[in-house]
């Protein structure tokens, strides 16, 4: 067995830093190994291109490919499921030189990863807003809501929702307006009826959902939202959440 472990480690080295690692073990090693190297790198590039299409559109195909190549070298897949590969891509992108000129890239990657994560998350029945209508404001305020397993929230100092939306495949470049980079946008990703929905929400709204996520009562979460924005419109915000499946029905 140890011989085979050694051979498999030599393979790994031959695919990465040391092209000569299989000389004398594999016939015509350097040339033949390029087939496997191409398959592996192409497969991972394809996986991340499918997961981060807007980011790819922002930086362009060649720059995206070199980012991915660097990412693979830094953080190769450590899980048998390719669908889990890319969770660290946002944090990685933030460390790259390109992040200096495109500072929102990390948050754009977070939005795209959240969408992928949401799509594959567990199922749960949506909260029926009618069930909250008990007529007793105190019990409503003490209520702890359960977030749907497919709900994700991303806060950002950049207009990340607009950037994400304008970099969809079906948007024509000529329709892209000038962006005010000083506008902060926050995003909620939900999956109400089998489709992933991506919406911009206010910072106060993001605070509310994050508080619920942390186990706060609805009353405390709403109070926290008012602390962020005194003009917080609780009725309208909750209606948005009920319509888009932010919360799950109680267990």
């Amino acid at each position: 067995m140890s011989d085979l472990v050694d051979l498999q480690r030599q393979f790994l080295r031959a695919l990465n830093e040391d092209a000569g690692a299989l000389d004398g073990v594999v016939v015509d090693a350097a040339r033949r190994m390029t087939v496997h190297k191409t398959t592996i790198e192409g497969g991972l590039l394809n996986t991340l291109a499918n997961g981060f299409p807007a980011l790819r559109r922002v930086v362009g195909g060649p720059v995206f490919a070199s980012l991915v190549s660097e990412f693979i070298a830094t953080a190769p897949p450590r899980h048998p499921l390719l669908s889990t590969y890319g969770g660290g891509f946002a944090a990685f992108v933030a460390t790259q030189p390109i992040a200096a000129s495109l500072p929102y890239l990390q948050d754009l990657a977070r939005v795209e990863w959240a969408r992928q994560d949401s799509y594959l998350a567990a199922d749960a029945a949506l909260l029926d807003p009618g069930s909250l209508n008990t007529g007793d404001p105190d019990s409503l305020s003490r209520l702890t809501l359960r977030l749907h397993p497919a709900t994700r929230v991303i806060t950002s100092p950049f207009p990340v929702h607009t950037i994400w939306r304008l970099n969809q495949a079906d948007v024509d470049d000529k329709d892209i307006p000038a962006l005010d980079m000083k506008v902060a946008e926050h995003v909620i990703v939900t999956r109400p009826h089998g489709e992933v929905v991506t919406r911009a929400i206010s910072l106060a709204d993001a605070a509310l959902v994050t508080a619920v996520m942390g186990g706060a009562s609805l009353g405390a979460a709403v109070e926290g939202a008012f602390a962020v924005a005194p003009d917080f419109d609780v009725t309208q915000v909750l209606a948005g959440h009920f319509a888009n499946g932010t919360f799950a029905s109680p267990c």
Partner: peptide, 9 residues
């Protein structure tokens, strides 16, 4: 797979 690294091939 070897040493916890998964090669998609």
């Amino acid at each position: 797979a070897v040493d916890g690294i998964h090669l998609n091939d």
